[in-house]
C-alpha cells in the first residue's frame, strides 16, 4: 500500500511541477512526454509483438504533415485534426506494412528503415507540391481548447501529459486483454501462435496500424507545438531514438518505456556540456545493456488474473 501512495505522490508532484520549474525545463518535460507517447506507440509493434520496426518516424511524419497541410491550407482547427492525423498515419501504415508483414527479423528491420528514408526523401522533394521541400511547412496554428489557446510550455505540459495519461490508461487495459496477449504469443513463438489459432498476419498488421494511429496523433501535437515542421525532424535517427527508448526502458513495459524516455531525452539535458559525446554514451549504453540486461531496465510485470474468484 505504501508503494501505491508513493506513486500517487510522485504523480501529484509531477503534475504540479510546472509551477516551480522554469519554461526551459517545462519544455524538456514536454519533449519527454512526446517521445514517451511515440515510444509507447512503437512499443505495440516492437515491444509487444517483437517486430523489428525502425521506421516509426515515418508514421509520426505522416500525422504531423497531415495536420500541417490541412491546417495551413484549409484552416481546419488543430484539435479536429487529431483523429484525422491518426487515421491518415494508420492508413499509410496499413498500405506500407501489408506487403511486408510476412518478413521476419532483420529483413523487416531493413525495410522499415527503407520506408522512413523514402518518406523523408519524399518530403524533401516536396511531394505533390504539398510538403514545402526541405524548408517544411510553417505557420501552423495552436490548439484552441474551450477558448484557451494552448501556447505556453505550461499549457503544452498539461496538454501532452494528459494525452499521455489517457494513452497509458488505454494501453494498459489493452495489454491485459485478448489482443495484448495475442501480440505476446506472436513475439514468443509465431508458429505456436498460429497453431493456437492466432491470425498472425492480421495481428501484426493491427499492431502496426494501431501504433501508427497513435504516432500520427502525436504528429498533430508536435506540429502545433512547434508551429513549423521540416523533414529533418523525421529522420531514421529519430526512429532509432524511439527504438532505443523501448529496448533500454524495457520491451513491452509501459512504465519501462516512460522511464526510458526520461533517461534518453531528459538525462542528456543535465549534461549539456558533454552534448558532443552524448551519442557516444548512448551507443555504449546500448552495448552494455544488451550484454548485462537485455530485457531492459524495467521489464514488463507479469499479468495478474483473478483466479481465486473463479475457484
Amino acid at each position: 500500500m505504501n508503494r501505491k501512495y508513493l506513486i500517487w505522490a510522485i504523480c501529484l508532484i509531477f503534475f504540479l511541477s510546472p509551477l516551480f520549474l522554469n519554461a526551459y525545463w517545462v519544455d524538456v518535460l514536454n519533449n519527454i512526454g512526446i517521445y514517451a507517447i511515440l515510444a509507447l506507440s512503437l512499443n505495440f509493434i516492437l515491444g509487444d509483438t517483437g517486430l523489428f520496426h525502425m521506421g516509426h518516424a515515418a508514421f509520426f511524419a505522416v500525422g504531423a504533415y497531415t495536420t500541417a497541410i490541412l491546417n495551413t491550407m484549409y484552416h481546419i482547427p488543430i484539435l479536429f485534426l487529431i483523429p484525422f492525423s491518426g487515421i491518415t498515419a494508420a492508413i499509410f501504415a496499413y498500405l506500407v506494412a501489408r506487403p511486408i508483414i510476412h518478413l521476419r527479423g532483420d529483413y523487416l528491420l531493413i525495410v522499415t528503415i527503407g520506408i522512413v528514408e523514402i518518406v523523408r526523401i519524399a518530403l524533401v522533394n516536396n511531394i505533390f507540391g504539398l510538403t514545402g521541400g526541405s524548408n517544411g511547412i510553417f505557420g501552423i496554428s495552436r490548439p484552441h481548447l474551450f477558448g484557451l489557446i494552448i501556447r505556453r510550455p505550461t499549457h503544452f505540459f498539461y496538454y501532452i501529459w494528459i494525452f499521455l495519461a489517457v494513452s497509458v490508461f488505454l494501453f494498459h487495459r489493452l495489454r491485459n486483454s485478448r489482443f495484448g496477449r495475442a501480440l505476446n504469443y506472436i513475439k514468443e513463438d509465431e508458429v505456436a501462435a498460429e497453431g493456437t489459432g492466432v491470425d498472425i498476419a492480421k495481428y501484426k498488421l493491427i499492431a502496426f496500424v494501431l501504433g501508427a494511429f497513435w504516432a500520427g496523433m502525436v504528429g498533430n501535437i508536435y506540429a502545433s507545438k512547434m508551429t513549423i515542421i521540416s523533414p529533418e525532424s523525421f529522420t531514421f535517427w529519430e526512429s532509432v531514438i524511439y527504438f532505443c527508448i523501448v529496448i533500454l526502458g524495457g520491451s513491452g513495459s509501459i512504465t519501462g518505456v516512460i522511464l526510458g524516455s526520461f533517461l534518453l531525452i531528459g538525462l542528456p539535458e543535465l549534461f549539456r556540456e558533454f552534448a558532443q559525446a552524448r551519442m557516444l554514451v548512448f551507443g555504449l549504453a546500448m552495448i552494455i545493456m544488451m550484454i548485462f540486461r537485455p530485457q531492459g531496465i524495467l521489464p514488463p510485470p507479469p499479468r495478474k488474473y483473478n483466479v481465486d474468484q473463479i475457484n
Binding site: D106, I247, Q276, L280, G283, I287
Partner: peptide, 21 residues
C-alpha cells in the same frame, strides 16, 4: 537476436561518434 541487433546499432553509433570527436 534483437539483443545482438541493438548492440550492433550501439557499436555503429560509438564508432561514428568516436570518429566525429
Amino acid at each position: 537476436r534483437l539483443a545482438a541487433v541493438v548492440s550492433a546499432l550501439g557499436a555503429s553509433i560509438v564508432i561514428s561518434n568516436s570518429i566525429m570527436l
